[in-house]
Design a protein around this nucleic acid. Structure first.
Length: 437
DNA sequence: TCTGGGGTCCTAGGACCC
DNA sequence: TCTGGGGTCCTAGGACCC
C-alpha cells in the first residue's frame, strides 16, 4: 500500500450545481428544478439559424425522455410523444448572475484564496481551516451549505469531499451525483474501495476517449490495473501524462488551492460553425473579418496586444477521401490589437493555405498576449494614421458597449454570408440577452 | 454520434544561435 | 568546415474540459 503520510491531508469541497442551466430556467418559471421536465435549447427547432442542440436538460427530462446534453434538436421527441417537455431559450447572463450568487454564499464559509471557481457551475473550496467553525463534521458542513443554497436560490448542489482536490472531484463525479444525500467523502484509505472500483476509465476526470483507448492497447482496462502498472512504462508511453495518470490511480494530488497558480489567460479566440458550406472566397473572408474584429475587440477590452494569431479552418465533411479535413495555422506578428492589422494577418494566412475547399467552420485565436502599454508603430504607415486607426477602433468599441453590437456595423456585415449581426445577441455563442455586457 | 463555443496543456520537429 | 552539444523559439497537431 502506498504511504500517504506525506501527502496533503486537507478538507476540500468540490461543489457542483445540478443541471445548472436547466435549474435556473425552471426557477424563472416558478418550477422546482427537480420536478420540471425542461431542456435548454440553443436554437429552437424552427429557427433557420444553426443546427441547434440541447445545452442542458433537467434530471426529469433526462429520465423521462432520455435527453442528453449533447443531443441534437432534431433528435428530440416530438410534441405528441412528450407533451409536458418544456423547451426554453438559454439566458447566459442569468446563469452568470446566479453563479456569482452561489460564490457569494461560499465566501461566508471560506476565505477568498481558498475558493476556486472551476467553471460556471463548479467550485472547489479548501475548507481545512474553516470547516470546524460551521459544524462537527465536514459532512454536516457540506449539508449546511447545500441547504443554504437551496433556501436562498432554489438550486440543488452536489458535493464531493476529499483530502485533496482530485479526491474531492472524483468523489463528486463518481459517487455524490448518484447518492440521495448528494454528498460523498473520500479519504486516501478509501482508494481501493473507490477509485480502484472504477471500470469505465472515461468517467475519470482527465481521461477521455482517446486516452482510454490508448491505455486499452496496453491491457489497462480499469483504474485498478492502472494503479498496478509499472509507472516507468506509463512514463515512457504517455510522457508527463503517464505520471499524472499513475498518481491519479492512487488518489495522489499535491495541489493546494490557496497556492493555486492562476494561468493568466493566454488566449482569446472565437469560432463558429457556419450554417451551410461556404465556397466563395469573398463570403468566407467577410466572416473572417467579423470574427477577427470580435477577437480584436476582446483583447482591446482587456488592454492587451497579441503577438501571435492563429486561424482554424474546417472543411465541409463532404471532402473526397484522403483529402485534408481542414487546417490550422498560426503566425508570430508584430504586437497589435487593431482590427485591420489582425484581420490582414488572418486573411494572408487564409489565402496562403486555402485551396478552394468548401468551408464549414472558422476560428481565430489571439495568443501570446502582452499588456497594451504603448502602441507599436510600424515604418510602413505614417504614425498619425496609425494612431488615428487605434482611436477609431476604440470609439467603435465604446459605442457598441453603450448601444449594443448592432448599433454600428461594417457595411460588409450586411452582405451575403455575413453572420455578425445575427450572432450579436449571443453570449459564449448562446443567446445571452445582451452580448455587450 | 458528428459540425456548439470557449478554453488549457503537452509533444515533437525544425530553425537558429552559441 | 563539419560535427558537437545545449538552449530557445516557433509551428502544427493532439487531447481534454465545461
Amino acid at each position: 500500500m502506498y504511504d500517504y503520510r506525506y501527502e496533503p491531508h486537507r478538507v476540500v469541497f468540490m461543489i457542483d450545481n445540478k443541471s445548472f442551466f436547466a435549474s435556473c430556467e425552471a426557477l424563472e418559471l416558478g418550477l422546482n428544478p427537480m420536478k420540471a421536465v425542461l431542456a435548454v435549447v440553443s436554437h429552437q427547432p424552427d429557427s433557420k439559424y444553426g443546427s441547434g442542440l440541447i445545452m442542458a436538460a433537467s434530471p426529469l427530462a433526462k429520465a423521462k425522455y432520455g435527453l442528453t446534453n449533447v443531443m441534437r434538436v432534431r433528435d428530440l421527441p416530438n410534441k405528441r410523444d412528450a407533451p409536458d417537455l418544456l423547451l426554453v431559450d438559454p439566458h447566459m447572463n442569468l446563469y452568470i448572475k446566479r453563479s456569482m450568487q452561489v460564490l457569494d454564499i461560499f465566501r461566508k464559509y471560506a476565505a477568498e484564496e481558498d475558493i476556486h471557481a472551476y467553471s460556471i457551475d463548479e467550485s472547489m473550496i479548501d475548507m481545512t481551516k474553516s470547516w470546524h467553525l460551521f459544524g462537527d463534521d465536514p459532512y454536516l458542513v457540506a449539508r449546511k451549505i447545500q441547504l443554504e443554497i437551496k433556501k436562498k436560490l432554489g438550486l440543488y448542489t452536489t458535493c464531493g469531499i476529499g483530502e485533496n482536490p482530485l479526491l474531492a472531484k472524483l468523489a463528486m463525479d463518481i459517487s455524490a451525483k448518484h447518492r440521495r444525500s448528494m454528498i460523498a467523502y473520500w479519504h486516501y484509505i478509501d482508494v481501493p474501495d473507490t477509485i480502484w472500483q472504477i471500470n469505465d476509465m472515461e468517467e475519470v476526470w482527465g481521461i477521455g476517449h482517446r486516452t482510454a483507448r490508448h491505455l486499452h492497447r496496453f491491457h489497462i482496462n480499469n483504474m485498478y490495473e492502472l494503479a498496478h502498472t509499472d509507472p516507468a512504462i506509463l512514463k515512457k508511453e504517455f510522457g508527463v501524462i503517464g505520471e499524472q495518470l499513475f498518481a491519479m490511480s492512487w488518489g495522489v494530488d499535491r495541489s493546494i488551492i490557496s497556492q493555486k497558480y492562476f494561468p493568466q489567460m493566454k488566449n482569446y479566440g472565437n469560432s463558429q460553425i457556419l450554417t451551410r458550406d461556404y465556397t466563395v472566397q469573398r463570403e468566407i473572408e467577410i466572416v473572417l473579418r467579423e470574427i477577427g474584429e470580435q477577437v480584436a475587440a476582446r483583447i482591446r477590452a482587456h488592454r492587451l496586444q497579441a503577438e501571435c494569431v492563429s486561424l482554424f479552418v474546417w472543411f465541409s465533411k463532404y471532402q473526397p477521401n484522403g483529402e485534408r479535413s481542414g487546417f490550422s495555422v498560426q503566425r508570430k506578428i508584430c504586437p497589435t490589437n487593431e482590427n485591420d492589422a489582425i484581420v490582414q494577418e488572418i486573411l494572408a494566412l487564409f489565402r496562403q493555405n486555402w485551396r478552394g475547399e468548401a468551408v464549414r467552420a472558422l476560428g481565430i485565436t489571439c495568443s501570446q498576449l502582452i499588456p497594451d502599454r504603448y502602441q507599436q508603430l510600424t515604418f510602413l504607415v505614417s504614425p498619425s494614421a496609425q494612431i488615428k486607426k487605434h482611436q477609431v477602433d476604440q470609439t467603435i468599441d465604446e459605442i457598441r458597449q453603450k448601444y449594443g453590437f448592432s448599433s454600428l456595423v461594417k457595411a460588409s456585415s450586411l452582405l451575403e454570408g455575413a453572420t455578425a449581426i445575427q450572432r450579436s445577441s449571443l453570449v459564449g455563442g448562446h443567446n445571452g440577452g445582451n452580448a455587450y455586457e
